[in-house]
């Protein structure tokens, strides 16, 4: 089988955000970048599908040249090849992003002479959180889409997939014919770390570059702001085990014991 996984490069933010002086972006000068968490799990799911059923895998991202770093990370974990939809690094809204991905998928499928059996996305990106790119790609391609899944099983003989979505108090089960699109949530698996050998072989794997035309955006970010933060001092109860009586006192005061 043939799997395509779409990822997004996002800053690895740590404990606080610093904004750029114009307030339009996060100041990323001192930050590392990573694959957005849900998509890290999507990459893992793609690798597992190929390990189980055989075939080939492709990782795709829309972003600046620097996003090849995240493609390489996925390649190091075991994805076969990468595709970069290269932009100038400005933000694309979900309609524009989905459109570019749809065109790329059509091109890749025409070149390989077959559709991807499974398209994987993250449910939403860590930064922008638009919750719609995968769904839009699915609808544009006319393929079934199950969003926000935490379990996926493919029956190659049947050409179907069973996906589970967690809801309050239980699970919804969906069964769809392939080819199909799934947006996954963290928790579907525990992503692996790349091996040293994986990192070495990733350097030799091919990354195809495409330059999609940038359309006019319907949703435009004008400014970022920090929400009002909790104010008030942290009351230090003490250090080490000597602090335990103070903790107990505080727990009593709060009515916990």
């Amino acid at each position: 089988m043939n799997v395509l996984v779409c990822i997004k490069r996002v800053p690895d933010t740590g404990a606080r955000f610093e904004l750029t002086p114009d307030g339009r972006d996060i100041d990323t000068r001192n930050l590392e970048f990573t694959i957005s968490p849900h998509e890290e799990c999507a990459v893992e799911e793609a690798i597992r599908l190929i390990e189980r059923h055989g075939g080939g895998s492709t990782v795709l991202t829309l972003g600046p040249e620097a996003a090849t770093e995240q493609l390489r990370e996925a390649l190091a974990k075991g994805i076969d090849r990468g595709v970069l939809l290269e932009t100038d690094g400005s933000e694309w809204d979900p309609v524009a992003t989905a459109q570019a991905i749809v065109e790329a998928v059509k091109g890749l499928e025409a070149a390989q002479g077959a559709p991807f059996d499974v398209l994987l996305f993250g449910n939403e990106s860590a930064d922008a959180g638009h919750y719609q790119t995968g769904v839009r790609v699915a609808d544009a391609l006319g393929r079934p889409c199950v969003a926000g899944i935490k379990a996926l099983e493919v029956d190659v003989q049947d050409g179907t997939a069973t996906a589970k979505r967690e809801i309050p108090g239980g699970w919804e089960v969906y069964r769809v014919p392939l080819p199909a699109v799934f947006t996954v949530k963290e928790g579907i698996n525990v992503p692996r770390h790349p091996s040293l050998r994986g990192i070495m072989t990733a350097k030799k794997k091919a990354i195809q570059r495409l330059q999609p035309p940038k359309p006019e955006m319907q949703l435009v970010k004008t400014r970022l702001r920090k929400p009002p933060e909790r104010t008030g001092e942290c009351e230090i109860l003490g250090e080490g085990v000597e602090a335990v009586p103070k903790i107990v006192e505080k727990l009593k005061e709060l009515g916990v014991i």
Partner: peptide, 19 residues
């Protein structure tokens, strides 16, 4: 003009919505 959540609510985004 609208304000929406980013980073799960750690940041606010002012944005313009067309369409």
């Amino acid at each position: 003009a609208l304000t929406r959540l980013r980073w799960g609510g750690s940041l606010l985004e002012d944005a313009e919505l067309k369409g």
